[in-house]
């Protein structure tokens, strides 16, 4: 079994890309991310005056001989950063018809970012939350985790309405959490559930997927129907269209503000864009901060 052919261009485009953690990670396994721990890595980072209790083996004897002062060598350790993807597979992601562009973008983002993380040696896991249930991919560093992730994404049909917040319970607190969703479900609960991770060393990325047809509904739209709530029916005349754009923009701004205040990295992704470019943008924005 191999990764579905449709993800080939994305994987090629993100080859060589790094996605460093936003802050020092607390992992103990050697990895690609700066660790909180200072250890005996060959790469020297700084000197510090020797204090009682320090390991004498870290003393820089040559500097002591030159300066007659005791300094210890400090170097940054690197550790792995488990990366978990929570992918929204509710009915609202199956839009617009017939191509389900939002879902395809979500899958591309998950595969692309998972490939970047896996190549850096990070364990990658996923929870794909649909109305029928949650498909989980156990976090592993092996290369076939991408195959399993691709298979899991391909086996899910976006449908129903399911809450994403409970899926966070299975994600380790200090892992890098990537939420790929249109945030039309339980966004407030999800934000609350994700808010505490920042303080505990976690890293939260929110990729808000929106469609061009949601930003600017086509003129032929006369009556809009919510795929997750049949009671929501809205006629679309000229006046309603203007009100819709205004309200939707306000909501998006409010959501972005809320996630940023919660300590997450928020990014709005338009579904019609190139997934590879979006993956690159996510990784490089993290690198810029790092």
């Amino acid at each position: 079994m191999s990764i579905p052919r449709e993800y080939g261009p994305i994987l090629d485009a993100v080859r060589g890309l790094t996605w460093p953690a936003r802050r020092r990670v607390s992992g103990v396994h050697t990895g690609a991310h700066l660790s909180r721990l200072r250890g005996r890595a060959p790469e020297l980072s700084e000197y510090r005056l020797y204090r009682q209790g320090d390991d004498p083996r870290q003393l820089d004897w040559k500097l002591l001989a030159r300066s007659d002062r005791a300094f210890i060598r400090l170097s940054d350790d690197r550790a792995v950063h488990p990366t978990w993807f929570v992918v929204d597979a509710s009915a609202s992601m199956a839009f617009p018809l017939p191509g389900h562009t939002k879902w395809r973008m979500a899958c591309g983002l998950a595969i692309g970012l998972a490939a970047v993380a896996q190549r850096a040696g990070d364990p990658v896991g996923a929870a794909i939350v649909a109305g029928a249930g949650t498909a989980r991919v156990r976090a592993r560093t092996r290369a076939d985790v991408l195959v399993e992730l691709g298979s899991a994404l391909g086996g899910v049909v976006p449908s129903g309405a399911a809450a994403l917040a409970p899926a966070l319970l299975h994600v380790p607190e200090r892992a890098r959490l990537v939420i790929i969703s249109d945030l039309l479900g339980d966004e407030p609960a999800l934000r609350r559930a994700a808010a505490g991770r920042g303080s505990t060393g976690g890293d939260v990325h929110v990729l808000h997927v929106v469609s061009r047809d949601e930003l600017d509904p086509p003129p032929s739209l006369a009556l809009a129907l919510d795929p997750e709530d049949a009671s929501i029916e809205r006629p679309f005349d000229a006046g309603a269209r203007a009100v819709y754009r205004e309200r939707f923009a306000e909501w998006r701004d409010e959501v972005a503000r809320g996630w940023r205040l919660a300590g997450a990295t928020y990014r709005q992704v338009q579904a019609e864009h190139d997934p590879a470019l979006e993956v690159r943008a996510v990784a490089m924005s993290a690198a810029g901060r790092g």
Binding site: D182, E214, L223, A224, P227, E228, R234, Y244
Partner: peptide, 21 residues
Amino acid sequence: RRPEPTLLPTARFAPSSAVRA
């Protein structure tokens, strides 16, 4: 006439009014 309904996940942001006109 009742217009042809079309799925729109963000329909909730449109103002509600009489569907049949």
